[in-house]
Design a protein around this nucleic acid. Structure first.
Length: 272
DNA sequence: AGTGCGACCCGAACGC
DNA sequence: TGCGTTCGGGTCGCAC
């Protein structure tokens, strides 16, 4: 489940591997994955090179000379660097071949990930990127900003934290962790969140994401960020995936409940 | 405008 | 053992 920390880990890993290598060939084995015109997608990559890899929320932005290749890993998307002669395995959907006979291969078990090619000048108006909210750690992400965003919302705060147009980058894992660290009950309605609680969200989101990036993200189930990199943040999870285990703070049992159809883990004692 | 829910996917986990 | 069913999870689009 790549969230902001996992995507950042992928970005850092890939930057060391693929910048300035000439793209020789692009193979698309699952066309629905590409949101833009397929031929345009291929032609814009071919004989070009990635000059940088940026990130906005959970979106990766592969920078070309005149375009950005946008990539969202959704649930299970991964990038692997392989030799071109290695056989293509199941779930490898996009193959970008460089002139040094290496491949950047996009692997996605559930085919949920998406790619999109846009011209550089389209970045500001590109819907998926433009609507992203503030990221944890950005100084504009303040308690007042959150209170303003929350004040008209009757949804549970857990659901609101997953709204990328408010805070960009949090997924289910870190939303659970941020609420535990902030001692906020995940069912609490957005418009009932106090300034103190909003301040706690600001602080703990920054702290948790920074720490998760340090540790290379969280490896849950089979998810490894890319190129066999394994995240180590799961060792520091306080509530996520810990149903019926002891709360590391008060020693009562961690509870699991659905909120908005998503598994929510929390400590009923610490998060009143 | 805010809210809620199905659709997209397919492997794993579960139930019988 | 084997088969059918349910679950998960980010995002979008649609209905209300």
């Amino acid at each position: 489940m790549p969230e902001i920390a996992e995507v950042e880990t992928v970005r850092n890993t890939l930057k060391k591997q693929i910048l300035y290598k000439k793209i020789r060939e692009v193979k698309i084995l699952y066309e629905q994955m590409i949101e833009s015109d397929i031929e345009e997608f291929k032609n814009s990559l071919k004989n070009n090179q990635f000059v940088d890899i940026k990130r906005r929320g959970k979106w990766l932005l592969f920078e070309l000379e005149n375009h950005y290749l946008l990539s969202h890993l959704r649930m299970e998307g991964k990038f692997f660097l392989k030799f071109h002669h290695e056989p293509i395995v199941k779930h490898e959907h996009i193959i970008i071949t460089f002139s040094d006979n290496t491949d950047l291969r996009y692997h996605d078990t559930r085919k949920f990930g998406r790619m999109n090619l846009i011209k550089k000048e389209e970045l500001k108006t590109c819907k998926s990127i433009a609507k992203q909210g503030l990221e944890p750690g950005e100084k504009e992400l303040t308690a007042d900003y959150l209170l303003e965003s929350f004040k008209s919302k009757t949804m549970p705060i857990k659901t609101i934290l997953l709204d990328q147009t408010i805070i960009s980058g949090l997924g289910n894992i870190y939303a659970n962790e941020v609420l535990f660290a902030s001692k906020i009950n995940p069912f609490k309605k957005g418009n009932r969140i106090t300034k103190k609680e909003a301040q706690m969200i600001v602080i703990s989101a920054d702290k948790i994401i920074t720490r998760a990036i340090e540790l290379g993200g969280t490896t849950i189930k089979s998810y490894t960020s890319s190129l066999g990199v394994t995240g180590r943040f799961q060792q520091e999870l306080m509530v996520h995936k810990r149903e019926n285990e002891e709360c590391r703070n008060c020693h009562n049992k961690i509870k699991k409940e659905k909120i908005g159809g998503r598994s929510t883990y929390y400590c009923p004692t610490c998060q009143k």
